[in-house]
């Protein structure tokens, strides 16, 4: 099979899925002794040039890797943390040479910005917010949204970075009366923001005015859905959801992602498509990432599965490598690569 082959006419059985649709192009080995937790890609200015860099996060170290020739990588900066471990990397689109991280144990306790001194010789970090933080997301136009506090004093805050990543403006959004689990941008609508809540509602804000526009209840068959992507078309809102708490269905296989359509005017919604695992493949959604019309998920089986959301089915499976289960997966925002990581610090870069 060629690496370019991505079209499959019929729903394939798992043993006929083409592993060649994912071609390994590069590998990074993070030698840090602590457990690897996340990976991402971002633009960083190095010696006057913006380079597509990879960011890796272990529990107590976040590292920036710059590309060398022939798909080699060189670690150029490391930020160290001593008290609170890193939970996730938060890339802020449209900001160069700055990345945010969420730190905490089970829940986020701090959000920090990581950058370098103007001469590029030393790593810097600054605390952006602290407290009982529930969700955080980087948004277009150099913005970062986070929610913190409990039900009665929940605060939803937008922080806007200056072009150089420096001084910040803050704005509050109207909080919904239920805990927010995740945020999602609406593709092509920079002033719209979605949130998913613990009560299985999707809320929508106007970022310009801070108004909470609507609370929309979605299908109760899956609890605590997470929204990975949203777009508006012909007056309807389409959302790609995952169901981390869905029970495995032996007959049908576990639905890993779901496309749902919502009419924001009436708050009525209906399922459009379920993205299931191929027959014979077991596992539930652990974590995943959606970019354009491609969705990738790490399954409880330790395998990574990729779906083409337009074709409607799984197009590639990536079983554990060297007997090691996959722990996290991200689409690179700087190109069309898939970044797959294992707990021991191995990061693999695949061309899809």
């Amino acid at each position: 099979h060629s690496a370019e082959q991505t079209e499959i006419a019929e729903v394939p059985a798992w043993d006929s899925l083409n592993p060649g649709t994912l071609q390994l192009v590069s590998k990074l080995k993070n030698p840090s002794g602590s457990c690897s937790v996340d990976v991402s890609a971002t633009w960083w200015e190095i010696a006057g040039f913006k380079e597509p860099c990879v960011i890796t996060a272990c529990e107590y170290v976040v590292s920036l890797w710059k590309p060398l020739d022939a798909w080699q990588w060189e670690k150029i900066y490391s930020w160290h943390f001593t008290e609170v471990p890193v939970l996730q990397i938060v890339v802020v689109p449209d900001v160069c040479s700055l990345v945010c991280v969420a730190l905490g144990n089970l829940e986020i306790r701090e959000i920090r910005a990581l950058f370098c001194s103007p001469d590029g010789k030393s790593e810097k970090q600054v605390l952006l917010s602290s407290g009982n933080i529930k969700a955080v997301l980087g948004l277009a136009k150099r913005r970062l949204v986070s929610s913190s506090g409990t039900l009665c004093d929940q605060q939803v805050e937008i922080m806007t970075f200056a072009e150089d990543g420096g001084s910040k403006e803050k704005q509050l959004l109207m909080p919904p009366e239920e805990t927010i689990l995740t945020f999602a941008e609406v593709q092509g609508m920079q002033e719209a923001l979605l949130g998913t809540t613990i009560m299985n509602n999707i809320v929508i804000w106007n970022l310009k005015t801070g108004q909470l526009l609507k609370k929309m209840h979605i299908d109760d068959s899956y609890q605590a859905s997470v929204c990975h992507k949203a777009y508006s078309e012909m007056g309807l809102l389409f959302v790609v959801l995952s169901h981390p708490r869905a029970k495995e269905n032996e007959l049908l296989g576990s639905p890993v992602f779901q496309l749902t359509v919502i009419n924001p005017k009436t708050a009525l919604s209906t399922g459009v498509m379920l993205y299931r695992l191929p027959h014979g493949q077991a596992g539930r959604f652990l974590e995943g990432d959606v970019k354009d019309h491609f969705a990738a998920a790490v399954l409880t089986s330790g395998t990574i599965a990729v779906w083409d959301l337009l074709l409607g089915h799984c197009t590639a499976l990536l079983p554990p490598v060297s007997g090691q289960s996959w722990s996290f997966v991200k689409w690179s925002g700087t190109d069309s690569h898939l970044l797959a990581g294992q707990k021991d610090g191995n990061i693999f870069v695949y061309r899809y």
Binding site: N206, Q211, K214, S232, M234, G235, L236, V261, K265, T270
Partner: peptide, 23 residues
């Protein structure tokens, strides 16, 4: 899915909801 099940659709839903919602 059937569009009719979702009720009346508006292409300007974002602007309309913004004008209706409390600020």
């Amino acid at each position: 899915c059937n569009k009719a099940d979702l009720g009346p659709i508006s292409l300007n839903w974002f602007e309309e909801l913004s004008s209706e919602a409390p600020s």
